[in-house]
C-alpha cells in the first residue's frame, strides 16, 4: 500500500504544521509553469545556485510542475558551453531556454536542437551585441519566423530598445523578464501596441499591481516567473494567490499563457507536442 505521508512533498509537510500554517496549496491546482529559472553553477550567485536535482526539489516544494530553464554558464560565460550543459540535463520538466548569439554559425548550430525558447543576454557585461537589425537582424528573423519564445531581462536592455525591437519584429513572442514594479508607464503603451509582448511576475510586486493590471487589461500577457534560484518562489506565488481575480485568470498567468506560446513555437518548428 502506498504511504500517503511519504508521498507528500516536503512543501505539504512544511506548510501545514501545527502552529503557523500557510495556504499556498491552492497553487497545486494551477499547473505552475515558471518562465524565469536558471540552473547550474553561477560565478556571481554561487551560494544560491542550484544543480538540476536541487532545482527540482525546490520546484516540488512550491508546486511548480514545469520550468523554462536556462543555464548560468550560457549567460555568464559562453553561450555554446552553457547550451551544451543544458542539453546534458535532459529533464522532462525543464523546457530549455537556450543561450543564443547573433552569429549565423551559432544560429545554424542551435537550429539542430529545434529550440522552442531562448534567453537573450545582449548586455555589455554579457555577450555585447545590439538588438538592432544591423547587428542581430537575422537572429530575430529566425526567432520571429518560428515563433520561438524569446526571453530578455529588462535589466539588460533599455525600454527604448524594447520598443525598437518590437517595431522591427512585431510578431516576435518576446517575454520581458524582471520588469520591476516601476514598469507601468513604459510597459502599458508597449503592451497596447504589441500583442506579442509578454512579461513575467517575478519582480512585478507593487501593492495590488498584478490584480489591477488584470482588472484593467486582462491576464493574457502575464506569465508566472519566480527568478529561481535567486528569489524564493513564495513571493511570486503569494502575490498570485492573494490577487482578487478570477480563477481562469490565475491559471492563465500560472502556466496556460506560457503553454500557449510554446504550443505556437512547436507548431512552427515541427516539434512534436
Amino acid at each position: 500500500m502506498r504511504d500517503d505521508r511519504k508521498s507528500r512533498t516536503r512543501a505539504e509537510e512544511r506548510l501545514v504544521p501545527d502552529g503557523v500554517a500557510l495556504s499556498l496549496q491552492e497553487a497545486a491546482a494551477w499547473d505552475l509553469f515558471d518562465v524565469n529559472v536558471r540552473v547550474g553553477p553561477s560565478g556571481v550567485h554561487g551560494e544560491l545556485a542550484l544543480e538540476p536535482a536541487e532545482l527540482l526539489q525546490e520546484m516540488d516544494d512550491f508546486y511548480i510542475r514545469s520550468a523554462l530553464v536556462s543555464h548560468w554558464a550560457a549567460e555568464e560565460y559562453d553561450a555554446a558551453i552553457g547550451d551544451e550543459a543544458l542539453a546534458r540535463i535532459a529533464e522532462p520538466r525543464f523546457t530549455p531556454a537556450w543561450g543564443i548569439l547573433p552569429e549565423a554559425s551559432f544560429i545554424d548550430a542551435l537550429a539542430v536542437c529545434k529550440p522552442l525558447a531562448v534567453r537573450i543576454t545582449p548586455g555589455l557585461r554579457q555577450h555585447s551585441f545590439s538588438l538592432g537589425r544591423w547587428c542581430a537582424g537575422p537572429m530575430f528573423e529566425y526567432l520571429q519566423d518560428r515563433s520561438i519564445v524569446s526571453l530578455i531581462s529588462r535589466t539588460d536592455i533599455t525600454w527604448d530598445e524594447v520598443a525598437a525591437l518590437l517595431e522591427n519584429f512585431p510578431r516576435l513572442p518576446l517575454v520581458l523578464l524582471d520588469t520591476g514594479y516601476r514598469a507601468d508607464r513604459y510597459l502599458f503603451p508597449l503592451l497596447d501596441r504589441f500583442p506579442s509582448l509578454h512579461f513575467d511576475t517575478a519582480t512585478y510586486l507593487a501593492h495590488r499591481q498584478l490584480e489591477s493590471v488584470v482588472e484593467q487589461r486582462g491576464s493574457g500577457q502575464l506569465l508566472f516567473g519566480s527568478r529561481l534560484p535567486l528569489f524564493t518562489p513564495a513571493s511570486a506565488i503569494g502575490v498570485l494567490a492573494s490577487a482578487r481575480i478570477a480563477e481562469p485568470d490565475k491559471r492563465a498567468i500560472a502556466g496556460d499563457n506560457l503553454r500557449r506560446l510554446l504550443a505556437q513555437a512547436k507548431a512552427r518548428t515541427g516539434v512534436q507536442a
Partner: peptide, 8 residues
C-alpha cells in the same frame, strides 16, 4: 509594495 510577497 505587495504585502503578500513578504507574508508568503
Amino acid at each position: 509594495l505587495e504585502a503578500s510577497m513578504t507574508l508568503a
